[in-house]
């Protein structure tokens, strides 16, 4: 598996990362090197092997349905670059 320049542009756009045109070739090379490295795993036969989800067999922890958090809008907004009247304020997202 390898990626071409258009794929690099598309991945960057999906990740909202600004990539300049003159960086594309270099990134393409890096991504393809990583893919080639990971592709070595394809040499292992995993037919019939369940994907491993944890190192030790364990069930997902669940919690009871109770309100134990919230009610602190100031704390939630403390790190926001911009806020007003309890809202996070962000650049307008519709025309």
């Amino acid at each position: 598996m390898s990626v071409d320049a258009d794929t690099v542009r598309r991945i960057a756009r999906l990740a909202r990362i600004a990539v300049k045109d003159d960086e594309i070739e270099h990134l393409k090379g890096e991504l393809n090197a990583m893919l080639a490295f990971v592709e070595q795993l394809g040499e292992v036969n995993v037919d019939g092997v369940e994907p491993m989800t944890s190192v030790t067999p364990m069930a997902m922890r669940q919690r009871a349905d109770a309100v134990t958090d919230g009610d602190d809008p100031e704390a939630m907004l403390a790190n926001a670059p911009n806020s007003a009247d309890g809202f996070y304020m962000v650049p307008k997202v519709i025309e």
């Binding site: 958090d69 919230g70 009610d71 809008p73």
Partner: peptide, 18 residues
């Protein structure tokens, strides 16, 4: 998360760090 699902709270009052 353990934040409330109640409708109509003040903005960002039913929010946890999660």
């Amino acid at each position: 998360s353990g934040a409330s699902t109640e409708f109509g709270g003040a903005p960002n009052s039913h929010v946890s760090l999660v």
